[in-house]
Nucleic acid binder design. Structure first.
Length: 570
RNA sequence: GCGCCCGUAGCUCAGUGGAUAGAGCGCCAGGUUGCGGACCUGGAGGUCGUGGGUUCGAGUCCCGCCGGGCGCGCCA
């Protein structure tokens, strides 16, 4: 399989400081209470001139250990192993700065080694392995197949896709899942709408009237109509099922076009047919968490923190299960596939459902934290200062395909990747079109293409990089790293794994877009300050070529995490 | 009314309780006898909605208020 992911340099530094602290603490006693479980933290200093990493550990430990922070910092620093005593240490130096910070500098050796490793194994560069890899199911989009995806679905699609990419890169095993409803009355309405057009009648009051409905009517095979006219089921259902499958496969095509691939497409009707809903209700009953009221069967979700209990079997009609009952059945079905964690990407208008679904998970015997909801804030789509309403029934909406025709997939991906899911967005279509040309994504892609161009030029002039794994490579790099342009670029490149760690932990991709932009900026400055191709300085040229080749891989992998292309030229 | 989310530069947005609050866009002033000028350098621009509190330290945590969004179905 894939070679082992390299731990971030930050975690290596943390381990080194942690080891030093463990020695230093034997000379100290805590004042009272237990010391912090994770006393050593490592961060990036606000000012890069202070060093590669910083730690405020001594400041935090000062009180529990009743020591002056400065004194504690010195005690820790004294025990940190640096290259002075061990040439293999990643740390070149540790300095103590008032009021008690540790400022840490990486060694050229570890930078050279990391750069060499990037060239030797580009595919796994940036991948990390979290402490506890999990099997995770992520369900997103899940728009009902009654109409094409509109721009309101964009955020869920990108947020879910980005999350899956990041979780995978951090070592989790991820299944991407789409749930769609082919059981509710909307499907019948869709069918009735198609039939009404065919028969020249007025559309039903709550029918669908978008252009796509008329197109489906034209394309409907005769066989569908023949089947619909058979005795038994109402024709609207038969036609509706056919129509919704047309819509569903159109949705799938749109999503693939966006780079959002789904592993599993699951329909509500199969959950009922395969008995998962019934099974779930039995389990809730067995747990003693249901009761009957006014002829309905109710789940006692308040026992697990919900505001009110929820009906799962209706009192009306044929005691049909509610939509929520199907959700619970789905939960049972998903857990039966062995996932440790089940994630839902929902619009924030669904936040009221969080408590009941978590309650169901708990009643079923799972940990409520195994079920996780990520809520995306509302996107207000605006054109000329007016909000665009989005209604499938009225047919008044802008499809996702139309939007992406105007601003491009890479620009749209970057737009959503660089915003926290929880922040509300005003998306002005006209502004977005104008700004898409100035989207920072092109700045990053340009850096990548520029490097590709230099590498092509180098090859034409017969210059070659030392082969990956050649010890001469590390030697050449170490020779050049004391130089300022090289030192800055190398330090920026090697951060990728820690950026991925943070993105996976925070389940956001903001940090990746910021990092990619920083790396591009650092490269452009390097380009300005350091001539790469120089026949008079073959060793230096080779080392610089190696550095920019590693930069190119890092840019491509960072963009890849966002599902964005890294062009060789533009 | 109750609950959840949000309020940071002109605009769009960052900012795991740590050092002088940042980026992009926009605006102003500059930069190339050389590997891609879709680039680079510098500048202006902030009562972090507001009032208290917690502590060595608060944009960040707690409480109140103001403003905006969303939700409170035997719909899906």
């Amino acid at each position: 399989m894939t070679p082992e992911a390299m731990p971030s340099l930050r975690s290596q530094v943390r381990d080194a400081v942690e080891a030093a602290w463990q020695i230093a603490r034997t000379e100290l006693t805590p004042a009272d209470g237990a010391p912090a479980a994770e006393p050593v933290t490592i961060e990036r200093p606000a000012d890069a001139a202070r060093g590669d990493f910083a730690s405020a550990t001594a400041l935090r430990l000062a009180k529990p250990y009743r020591r002056a922070p400065l004194q504690l910092a010195q005690a820790i620093a004294a025990h940190v192993v640096t290259t002075a005593t061990d040439p293999n240490s990643p740390i070149a130096s540790v300095e103590v700065a008032p009021p008690g910070f540790l400022n840490i500098r990486l060694s050229d050796g570890v930078l050279a080694a990391a750069t060499g490793r990037i060239l030797a194994d580009p595919a796994t560069w940036g991948r990390v392995t979290v402490a506890k890899p999990e099997r995770i199911n992520v369900e997103f989009v899940s728009a009902n197949p009654t109409g094409p995806l509109h721009i309101g679905n964009a955020r869920g699609a990108f947020t879910g896709d980005l999350l899956c990419r990041v979780l995978s890169a951090a070592g989790h095993t991820v299944t991407r899942e789409y749930y769609f409803n082919d059981f509710g009355s909307q499907v019948k309405n869709l069918g009735a709408s198609v039939l009404a057009i065919r028969q020249g009648c007025d559309l039903p009051e709550d029918g669908y009237r978008g252009d796509y409905v008329y197109e489906m009517e034209k394309e409907m095979p005769a066989a569908v109509l023949t089947e619909a006219e058979q005795p038994g089921e109402e024709p609207s259902w038969t036609v509706g099922r056919w129509a919704s499958e047309q819509v569903r496969s159109g949705i799938e095509a749109s999503l693939e076009h966006l780079g959002c691939h789904f592993d599993v497409w699951r329909s509500e009707s199969t959950l009922h047919k395969d008995g998962w809903v019934a099974k779930a209700i039995e389990r809730l009953k067995a747990a003693g968490d249901v009761y009957e009221e006014d002829g309905a069967v109710v789940f006692r979700s308040t026992k697990f923190g919900d505001d009110k209990d929820r009906v799962i079997l209706r009192s009306t009609g044929d005691s049909a299960p509610t939509y929520f009952a199907a959700d619970i059945g789905y939960l049972v079905e998903k857990f039966s596939r062995g996932y440790q964690r089940i994630v839902f990407i929902w619009g924030e208008d669904h936040h009221g459902y969080v408590a009941r679904v978590k309650a169901a998970a708990e009643s079923l015997g799972f940990d409520r934290d195994q079920v996780q909801m990520i809520l995306t804030a509302w996107v207000r789509f605006v054109r000329d200062g007016k909000e665009i309403s989005m209604s499938k029934r009225s047919g008044d909406f802008i499809t996702l395909d139309e939007l992406l025709g105007e601003i491009g997939v890479d620009a749209a991906r970057w737009f959503f990747a660089s915003r926290a899911p929880s922040s509300g967005i005003d998306f002005d279509i006209e502004l977005a079109k104008k700004q898409s040309a100035e989207n920072p994504v092109y700045y990053v892609q340009y850096a990548h293409a520029r490097i590709a161009s230099i590498l092509r030029k180098a090859e034409e002039s017969g210059m070659k990089l030392p082969a990956a794994g050649d010890p001469r490579l590390t030697e050449l790099l170490a020779g050049v790293l004391p130089g300022a342009p090289e030192a800055l670029l190398a330090r920026q490149i090697v951060r990728l794994p820690e950026i991925v760690e943070d993105a996976a932990a925070e389940e956001e991709t903001l940090g990746i877009t910021a990092y990619a932009t920083d790396l591009a900026t650092t490269f452009h400055a390097f380009y300005r300050d350091a001539r790469v191709i120089d026949a008079d300085e073959p060793d230096r040229s080779a080392a610089r070529l190696a550095l920019i080749a590693a930069t190119k891989i890092t840019l491509a992998n960072a963009l890849g995490l966002l599902g964005i292309t890294a062009p060789e030229q533009m």
